[in-house]
Every structure is written in structure tokens, then in C-alpha cells.
């Protein structure tokens, strides 16, 4: 029986070997990380436009008194909890973001809606109560929404994107360089 014809292996130059590796890296990483990069890109676009999209409330405010006349944090927290209708005490608060330049404090709750109460730091009056839709998107963008350690997924996506860019440039420019 006649043996099947096998084409002899061509000797490749180092440039050709790199091109071949770049092609397969570009192909495999492009396909494997499509879904990850799609998710990261869409959440990134939404986060860039979170104010116009209504994901984050924009409260414009001017200071009503000197910063030294601001109410204590504990009092501001109590008022925020009352405004949000939270009964869990101080443990219901995720963070307090003080903005001395605007004379306000943003108190974010640890509920599914990520409710945020904006208060005047001097008078303690409630300026705004609303959900922060961008908190979950941020967690999804980084991979934290899936659980602890899942940030590695977005890290892998970022590394894949770098390899895709480098390999794409190589595949584009290398044939032109050789001419």
C-alpha cells in the first residue's frame, strides 16, 4: 500500500514563526474572550455615562455654612437612615462620602438598590434619596459581582486584550515591513 503524501515541513524564518504565533494567539484569544470583553466593554460604556443615563443622581448644591459648622457624622448617619427607612442601624450603611466643596454628604446603604441619601452637612436636611444603579455595574465590570476572586476574570480579559492589540499590529505591519 502506498503511503499518503505528506508535504515536507518548510523551514520558517523567525519572523514567520512569530507571525504564525501572533495569528493563532489573535484567533484563539479573540474567540475565547469575546463574551468577557463584551461584558466589560458594555458595562464600561454605561459607567462612563452614568449621570445622563440616570444611574447616579447628580445633586448640585452650594455650601450653606462653614465646614467647621458641619453636623457630626453620627448625626448625619442617623438622619440618612431615617430618610432611607432603614431599621438595621449603622450596619446598614456602606459608606459616607463627604464633599466639603459642595457642602453635602452622600450616605450609601447596603441594600440591593444601593440607596443613597444626600444630606446638607451643615443643616442635615435631605437633598435627595435614590438608588445608585452604577454600583452593581461597577461590580459587574470588575467581576466582583460573581464572587470573591472573580476579578481575575477581568484581569485575564485585559491581558487578552493587550495580546490581541500587539498581535493585531504585528499581523498588520509585519508583511508591510518585509516589502
Amino acid at each position: 500500500m502506498k503511503a499518503p503524501h505528506v508535504a515536507p515541513e518548510r523551514a520558517r524564518t523567525p519572523g514567520q514563526q512569530v507571525s504564525r504565533a501572533a495569528f493563532y494567539a489573535h484567533l484563539w484569544l479573540g474567540v475565547l474572550f469575546t463574551a468577557v470583553l463584551l461584558g466589560v466593554s458594555i458595562t464600561g460604556i454605561l459607567l462612563n455615562h452614568k449621570v445622563p443615563l440616570g444611574l447616579m443622581p447628580e445633586v448640585s448644591h452650594e455650601p450653606t455654612a462653614e465646614f467647621t459648622a458641619a453636623l457630626p457624622l453620627a448625626e448625619l448617619a442617623r438622619r440618612a437612615l431615617e430618610a432611607a427607612g432603614e431599621s438595621g442601624g449603622i450596619a446598614s450603611i456602606d459608606r459616607m462620602d463627604v464633599r466639603p466643596r459642595n457642602g453635602l454628604v452622600k450616605v450609601r446603604m447596603r441594600d440591593p438598590e444601593s440607596t443613597e441619601v444626600t444630606l446638607d452637612i451643615a443643616s442635615g436636611s435631605v437633598l435627595h434619596v435614590g438608588a445608585r444603579g452604577d454600583v452593581f455595574l461597577e461590580r459587574l465590570h470588575s467581576g466582583e459581582a460573581l464572587g470573591e476572586g472573580w476579578v481575575l476574570l477581568s484581569d485575564a480579559g485585559a491581558i487578552a486584550l493587550i495580546v490581541l492589540l500587539v498581535s493585531g499590529y504585528w499581523l498588520w505591519l509585519w508583511p508591510r515591513w518585509r516589502r
Partner: peptide, 16 residues
């Protein structure tokens, strides 16, 4: 399915 999964992932937790 990738499109459907992406849309499902964007659903805010408050809507669950």
C-alpha cells in the same frame, strides 16, 4: 446566547 446572557447580567439587583 452570549447576547441573552449579557442582557441578563445587566439587570440591576433591585429588579430581581
Amino acid at each position: 446566547a452570549m447576547c441573552a446572557a449579557t442582557v441578563a447580567a445587566m439587570y440591576p439587583p433591585a429588579a430581581w
